[in-house]
């Protein structure tokens, strides 16, 4: 197979126009042999062990170009399993301190083999999202979150639950989302997720000004 991948969108659009829709190319599954090569190419370092290369169901089925949409049933299966695994705080309190949330959103440290495992991880939200209006150094991989709460009618209990859950595990709502599963994979603590939830929903947060 000669790689002509970048020509695909053009080919696909022609096919679609001709009424013969085929999706963008899905990657062939990683074989046992591929996986052996991949694993032999890394060494455990610091807090990053080789077990980080063991893919869960979502990782396995989401290892595709972003133009690929996986089968509906598969997406539903991933979302259902991830949704069922969300753990909400036992005390039911989902809103923390938006100021602490802003610091978490600004910080990108955490879980790299070069990081001190004792230092709490950041959420690094600004790497990919616009969050507050004041911070102009923001990325564009994810949508803007400026006015997130304001646009959604404020911090109702339903919005709190949705927002907390979405940070805890975005793939509970959107299979193959680019966003890390911050609670599910233990990147952020319960309190940190509360704080980021508050950053997005608190009417006093700079996000909602």
């Amino acid at each position: 197979m000669k790689p002509v991948y970048w020509a695909l969108p053009a080919v696909v659009s022609v096919l679609v126009a001709a009424g013969c829709a085929t999706g963008p190319r899905q990657m062939e599954a990683v074989t046992a042999e591929d996986l052996n090569i991949i694993k032999a190419s890394f060494r455990a370092q610091g807090q990053a062990g080789l077990d980080r290369l063991d893919q869960d169901d979502a990782q396995k089925h989401c290892s595709n170009p972003p133009t690929v949409t996986i089968a509906k049933e598969l997406a539903a299966r991933i979302e259902k399993a991830n949704f069922a695994a969300i753990k909400y705080p036992a005390d039911g309190n989902l809103m923390g301190d938006w100021r602490a949330g802003e610091r978490i959103a600004q910080t990108g440290v955490g879980m790299q083999f070069s990081d001190n495992p004792k230092t709490p991880s950041g959420g690094n939200c600004y790497a990919c999202h616009q969050v507050s209006k004041e911070e102009i150094s923001f990325g564009t991989i994810g949508p803007s979150l400026y006015n997130y709460g304001k646009l959604r009618g404020g911090a109702s209990p339903e919005m709190q639950r949705y927002t907390y859950g979405r940070i805890y595990n975005p793939q509970a709502f959107t299979a193959c989302s680019n966003m890390p599963r911050f609670g599910h994979n233990g990147i952020l603590t319960e309190q940190q997720i509360r704080d980021v939830t508050a950053l997005l929903l608190d009417p006093n947060s700079p996000v909602n000004q």
């Binding site: 063991d54 990782q59 989401c62 972003p66 991989i141 890390p180």
Partner: peptide, 24 residues
């Protein structure tokens, strides 16, 4: 396109779409 690790990242997370940025 291989996703792994605690953040579910692959090369393609950052390098498979046009006109994207991390921070600036």
């Amino acid at each position: 396109y291989f996703r792994g690790g605690p953040h579910d990242f692959s090369c393609s997370t950052c390098h498979a779409e046009d006109n994207k940025r991390i921070r600036l």
